[in-house]
C-alpha cells in the first residue's frame, strides 16, 4: 500500500440547478474523518464525488490529494449493504476485485484477511449462510483485500444490531488504522467513538466539530465519549 494522502474537496454542488451544499472538507492523511448531517444534506454525494461515481448533479470545485497524484485506483468503498455476490462463496467474494480487474486473485492473502476479521471458518460458506454481522465482516475483508490507502465508508454498520455494530466499529478501526478514512454516518455515537475529526454538513456548508482528546477507537462508556456524543446529538437536533 502506498502512503495514505490527505484529500481536499472544496466547491459548490447543485442538483437540477438548485444549490445543495457548499463544502470545504479536508480529510487528514492516515486518519478517520466522520461526516455527519441530516438526511438529504449531501453526505453520500460527497462520498460519490470522491469515488468518481455519477451523482446526477453538478460539482463546481476541486478534489485533490495532498501528494498531487490522482485518486484513481487509490480509493476503496464499503456501503451500507454488504454487496456480497450471492453465487460466490465468502473467499471468492473477498477476491472479486482481482477478478473484475482481470488479474489472478491472491487467495492465500484473502484467507489471511478472513482470519483477521474472524471469518476463517466461513471461507467456503455462501453469503446467505452468514449473519448480518458476519456479512459485513466479509465486506470489510473484501475492502481490505483491495489494499487502497483511502477508504470511504457509507454507513456500513447502520443496519447491524447495537452489539454487533460496536464489535464491527472496533474491528474496522483496527483493520483500517493508518489509512485515510471517510465514514459517512447518521450516528453521533459512532462518530464520537471512531473519529479523529468530525465534520458536520448542512446546507450552509461544512463545519469541523471538536472530538474527545483520547485516540480512537474510544471506549463506548468513557465519560468524554458520552459527553461528545450528547453535545453532537443536541447540536444536530437544534440544527433541524
Amino acid at each position: 500500500m502506498t502512503p495514505p494522502p490527505g484529500i481536499t474537496l472544496a466547491g459548490d454542488y447543485a442538483l437540477g440547478g438548485a444549490p445543495l451544499f457548499r463544502a470545504n472538507l479536508h480529510l487528514r492523511a492516515g486518519e478517520w474523518t466522520c461526516l455527519l448531517g441530516r438526511s438529504g444534506t449531501g453526505k453520500t454525494t460527497i462520498l460519490r464525488l470522491l469515488l468518481g461515481l455519477p451523482t446526477g448533479g453538478h460539482f463546481a470545485g476541486q478534489i485533490a490529494a495532498t501528494d498531487g497524484a490522482s485518486l484513481q485506483n487509490r480509493v476503496s468503498y464499503m456501503a451500507q449493504s454488504d454487496l456480497l455476490l450471492p453465487w460466490l462463496n465468502v473467499l471468492d467474494n473477498v477476491c472479486i476485485g482481482a477478478r473484475l480487474r482481470g488479474t489472478i486473485p491472491d487467495r492465500a492473502r484473502a484467507a489471511e484477511l478472513l482470519r483477521r476479521v474472524g471469518l476463517s471458518g466461513a471461507a467456503h460458506h455462501m453469503p446467505r449462510q452468514l449473519s448480518g454481522g458476519m456479512r459485513q465482516r466479509a465486506a470489510l475483508a473484501r475492502t481490505l483485500c483491495e489494499d487502497r490507502p483511502v477508504v470511504l465508508l457509507d454507513e456500513p454498520f447502520s443496519a447491524l444490531d447495537a452489539g454487533t455494530r460496536a464489535d464491527m466499529q472496533d474491528l474496522a478501526a483496527q483493520a483500517l488504522a493508518g489509512r485515510t478514512v471517510l465514514l459517512v454516518t447518521h450516528d453521533p455515537a459512532e462518530a464520537a467513538r471512531l473519529a479523529h475529526q468530525i465534520v458536520l454538513l448542512s446546507p450552509q456548508g461544512t463545519a469541523v466539530w471538536p472530538t474527545a482528546p483520547q485516540s480512537p477507537p474510544r471506549a463506548i462508556d468513557a465519560p468524554d465519549t458520552i459527553a461528545s456524543q450528547s453535545r453532537l446529538l443536541a447540536h444536530l437536533r437544534c440544527a433541524a
Binding site: 485506483n73 456501503a79 476485485g97 473484475l100 480487474r101
Partner: peptide, 13 residues
C-alpha cells in the same frame, strides 16, 4: 446499482 458502484471503484471493465 450498488454492484455498479462497487465494480467501478474496483476498476472493472
Amino acid at each position: 446499482p450498488g454492484y455498479h458502484d462497487l465494480a467501478a471503484t474496483m476498476g472493472a471493465s
